[in-house]
Design a protein around this nucleic acid. Sequence first.
DNA 1: CCTCGAAACGGACCGTGGTCCGTTTCTATT
DNA 2: AATAGAAACGGACCACGGTCCGTTTCGAGG
Lengths: 195, 195
Amino acid sequence: MTRLLPLADEPAPERADAARNREAILTAALRLVETRGVGCVTMDTVAAEAGVGKGTLFRRFESREGLMAAVLNESETAWQARVISGPPPLGPGAPPLERLLAFGHSRMRVNVTHGDLIRAATGHDPVRSRAAAGFALMHVRHLLGQLEVTGDLRFLAFALLAPLEAMALEQQRVDGISLEQIERAWDDLVARVVG
Amino acid sequence: MTRLLPLADEPAPERADAARNREAILTAALRLVETRGVGCVTMDTVAAEAGVGKGTLFRRFESREGLMAAVLNESETAWQARVISGPPPLGPGAPPLERLLAFGHSRMRVNVTHGDLIRAATGHDPVRSRAAAGFALMHVRHLLGQLEVTGDLRFLAFALLAPLEAMALEQQRVDGISLEQIERAWDDLVARVVG
DNA sequence: CCTCGAAACGGACCGTGGTCCGTTTCTATT
DNA sequence: AATAGAAACGGACCACGGTCCGTTTCGAGG
């Protein structure tokens, strides 16, 4: 006996087969997504491709949405790393305003290129979405703080991010607004907000 | 023979039975939505309740999303009327800034109370969503114009509306921000934008 | 009133997301 | 190595959105 009571935040040790399967599923899902496109990837297909039962998919990733979020996370993490410790102006080292603008542009680009995947991963359940957007929210809020903006920074950060979200971009695109236009207009919005 | 060529924008005359059925479906859907809640209303249920076949539902309203949009539209229209010709400050007569603030608050309230229905009606398809948001977008843009704001009014209007959308509100709510906070912070945002 | 083509109807059918539960596999303990 | 029980597995099963197509109903000429 090694321990009497489980520590509260025990990292939930994962069984070997479980880990193996998770890896297989994620790999299969990624492959299928980038070959067939998000829309044509069914849970049955992924299960078959990964060589596991469908139940296993749903045990590890709650739902289709959750699986897509996991797939998305792979690239998202790399992007976050670039923001946190990459070269300026996206990474640290540049003045806050430049960083903020660079961040917005970068985020926009990410949201455009991964649009389909993001929409598939971002269901109508707001709780799940929160996690994904949390990082961006925190970062913008941080930069606004550095810029000595006054007011409800949490809301202002949210408001700046909202029109750059994948669905928002798509909506503006069908309204006939180009990405360049959005980029310029967003810079203008930032200028007004930081005062 | 009354006409040789159909006029280009002929309003597509509707057959009597079709009209009757549409009415029945809409009524049934509304009843079910407000008794059971949006989440528990299936297309089969609506069809049964309305006394029509499922195929009929999908002929008239494209999809579940479309049906919900139609249901939503009933109340949305009334709201639009209040904006266009109701008493100030929401309706005309008040100074533009007051109208803008009143509009934001009202829109927020609508988005909160009809949140479920809106989420059900607003699928991942951005094209459908555009129509619904179009009115609000146009109105805010109009008010910004009256306030002599310079810049890309279309984008600014969009940016002001985005954080008030149903899903955005829900997201902020789970982040622990109260509606009063949002309201105040939004007023502040407006002040910065109209400069 | 009859005719006839167009439009609408309706319900069997399908694909897909999600669940359930009997079976298998792992691993800590002795 | 044997044991036990917790965890994971997997595929049959279900519900719901959406389609298809043979049948019925409408209503404009005649």
